[in-house]
C-alpha cells in the first residue's frame, strides 16, 4: 500500500482514534535535511492494538512522537479523537498529552529519585488533583500491574520488568485514550516480555485503550491486531 493512502480505513471517522493526513517530517542535518517520514496517511481505530515495525532509523519512533504530540510534523495534519493536534500551541498540546496520551518508553524513563508510586503520580501533576487523590490513584495503578508491594521502592531497587510495569502504571493512571509504547520490551527477558505484552493487550481489550507499540520483536508484533511497517519514512501495512 502506498504511503499516500490510509492503510487502515475505519468505517467512520467518528470512531477513529487517529487520523493522519499526508504527514511528512524532515530533520535538518548540517546543510541538508533527512526525511524521516514521507506522505504518511493513516487511520487508527479506537481500542485497537497496533504494532509498528521497521528497521532502525526507518521512522518508527518519529511516527510515535508525532502521534504523541512530542514532535510536530513538517507537513500534513494529525487528528486525535477529532482534535487536530499538529498545529496546537505548546500549552494545549501539553494538556492533551496530560489527559489523553500515556507513554511507555524502552528505557522506562522513570525519575530515579522518586519512588514507584511517586513516579506514577508525576503523570497526574498536570491534572491538578489533590496529592491524596493522586497517591490513591497511583497505588491503584500499581496494583493493576501487580506492583503494589514495590510502591515505595526507588527505580534503582526494581528489576527491568518491574520498572516497565511502573512505567505502564504511570501511563495508565490518567485513564488515557491512547498508550504509545516505544520498544516496551526491548530490555526485558522473554517471560517479562510476555507479561508486559499481555498487560498492554489487556488494556486494549478490557479498557478500550488504543495501544500503539513500536517494536523490533516479531513476537510482540504478532499480538497486535493491526500491523504497520515503516521503512525509509514510508508506511505500509503488513
Amino acid at each position: 500500500m502506498t504511503t499516500n493512502q490510509s492503510p487502515m480505513l475505519t468505517d467512520s471517522a467518528s470512531i477513529s482514534m487517529y487520523e493522519l493526513d499526508n504527514i511528512g517530517k524532515e530533520f535538518p542535518k548540517g546543510s541538508s535535511t533527512v526525511i524521516a517520514l514521507e506522505n504518511v496517511s493513516l487511520s487508527i481505530p479506537r481500542a485497537a492494538m497496533v504494532s509498528v515495525q521497521g528497521p532502525t532509523g526507518g521512522g518508527k519512533s518519529t511516527l510515535l512522537q508525532i502521534l504523541g504530540g512530542l514532535e510536530r510534523p513538517t507537513t500534513g495534519s494529525v487528528t486525535l479523537n477529532g482534535t487536530e493536534i499538529s498545529s496546537l500551541r505548546d500549552g494545549r498540546l501539553s494538556q492533551i498529552r496530560a489527559e489523553s496520551i500515556g507513554f511507555v518508553f524502552q528505557n522506562y524513563n522513570l525519575i530515579p529519585t522518586l519512588s514507584a508510586v511517586e513516579n506514577v503520580q508525576t503523570a497526574l501533576v498536570p491534572t491538578k488533583i489533590s496529592n491524596k487523590e493522586a497517591q490513591h490513584r497511583a497505588l491503584r495503578a500499581l496494583e493493576s500491574v501487580n506492583l503494589l508491594d514495590r510502591a515505595h521502592h526507588l527505580p534503582g531497587e526494581l528489576s527491568g520488568g518491574q520498572q516497565q510495569r511502573v512505567a505502564i502504571a504511570r501511563a495508565l493512571v490518567k485513564n488515557p485514550e491512547v498508550i504509545l509504547a516505544d520498544e516496551p520490551t526491548g530490555n526485558l527477558d522473554e517471560q517479562t516480555r510476555d507479561d508486559i505484552i499481555g498487560l498492554l493487550e489487556g488494556l486494549a481489550q478490557d479498557q478500550g485503550i488504543t495501544v500503539i507499540v513500536v517494536t523490533h520483536d516479531s513476537t510482540v508484533a504478532k499480538r497486535a491486531q493491526i500491523h504497520l511497517r515503516i521503512d525509509n519514512g514510508k508506511l505500509e501495512t503488513l
Binding site: 512530542l70 501539553s94 492533551i96 489527559e99 508525576t122 503523570a123 501533576v125
Partner: peptide
C-alpha cells in the same frame, strides 16, 4: 523531557 512528555508545562 519525560515530564514534558507526561504533560508538564514549561
Amino acid at each position: 523531557g519525560t515530564l514534558k512528555a507526561l504533560g508538564w508545562r514549561n
